[in-house]
Amino acid sequence: MPQMDWLENHMDKCDQMAEWLHQEFSYEFAQQSLASWQQEFAAGQRDGHWKCLIATEQDQLLGGVSLASDDLPDRPELGPWLACVFITPTARRRGLAAQLIEGICNHAREAGFTTLYLHTHNQRDYYTGLGWEVLERFEAWGKEQWLMSRQL
Results as ranks from 00 to 15, higher is better:
Pro2Val: 06
Gln3Phe: 03
Met4Gln: 11
Glu8Ile: 15
Asn9Glu: 14
His10Lys: 12
Met11Cys: 11
Met11Phe: 12
Asp12Thr: 15
Cys14Asp: 00
Asp15Asn: 15
Asp15Ser: 15
Gln16Gly: 07
Gln16Leu: 15
Gln16Ala: 15
Met17Asn: 03
Ala18Thr: 04
Ala18Cys: 04
Glu19Phe: 10
His22Tyr: 11
His22Val: 07
Gln23Asn: 13
Glu24Met: 14
Glu24Trp: 12
Phe25Cys: 01
Glu28Gly: 08
Glu28Tyr: 12
Ala30His: 13
Ala30Asp: 09
Gln31Glu: 07
Gln32Arg: 14
Ser33His: 03
Leu34Cys: 06
Ala35Glu: 15
Ala35Ile: 14
Trp37Ser: 04
Gln39Met: 10
Glu40Arg: 12
Ala42Lys: 14
Arg46Cys: 11
Asp47Trp: 10
Asp47Arg: 03
Gly48Pro: 11
His49Ser: 15
His49Ala: 14
His49Met: 09
His49Arg: 13
Cys52His: 07
Cys52Lys: 01
Leu53His: 04
Glu57Ser: 11
Asp59His: 12
Asp59Arg: 09
Asp59Ser: 13
Gln60Met: 05
Gln60Thr: 13
Gly63His: 05
Gly64Met: 03
Ser66His: 04
Leu67Trp: 03
Leu67Arg: 01
Ala68Phe: 05
Ser69Leu: 10
Asp70Met: 09
Asp70Ile: 03
Asp71Gln: 06
Asp71Lys: 00
Asp71Ile: 00
Leu72Ala: 06
Leu72Phe: 05
Pro73Phe: 05
Arg75Ala: 02
Arg75Ser: 01
Arg75Asn: 00
Leu78Val: 11
Leu78Trp: 07
Leu78Met: 13
Gly79Glu: 07
Trp81Tyr: 08
Trp81Val: 01
Leu82Val: 10
Ala83Gly: 04
Ala83Asp: 12
Ala83Arg: 00
Val85Cys: 14
Phe86Gly: 01
Phe86Gln: 04
Ile87Cys: 02
Pro89Thr: 06
Arg94Ser: 08
Arg94Glu: 14
Gly95Thr: 15
Leu96Asp: 07
Ala97Cys: 06
Ala98Thr: 13
Gln99Ala: 09
Gln99Lys: 14
Leu100Asp: 02
Ile101Gln: 01
Ile101Trp: 00
Glu102Arg: 11
Glu102Leu: 07
Gly103Phe: 03
Ile104Glu: 00
Cys105Leu: 07
Asn106Val: 13
Ala108Leu: 02
Ala108Ile: 02
Arg109Met: 11
Arg109Tyr: 05
Thr114Val: 09
Thr114Asp: 10
Leu116Tyr: 03
Leu116Phe: 04
Tyr117Thr: 01
Leu118His: 01
His119Phe: 08
His119Cys: 02
Thr120Asp: 10
Asn122Ser: 15
Asn122Lys: 07
Arg124Val: 15
Asp125Pro: 00
Tyr126Cys: 06
Tyr127Cys: 03
Gly129Arg: 08
Trp132Glu: 02
Glu133Asp: 14
Val134Arg: 05
Leu135His: 05
Leu135Gly: 02
Glu136Leu: 09
Glu136Tyr: 01
Arg137Ile: 10
Arg137Val: 12
Phe138Ser: 00
Phe138Ala: 02
Glu139Phe: 06
Glu139Trp: 02
Ala140Lys: 01
Trp141Tyr: 15
Gly142Gln: 09
Lys143Cys: 09
Glu144Asn: 10
Glu144Ser: 10
Glu144Ile: 05
Glu144Lys: 08
Gln145Asn: 13
Leu147Gly: 04
Met148His: 07
Met148Gln: 09
Met148Arg: 04
Ser149Glu: 08
Gln151Asp: 12
Leu152Asn: 07
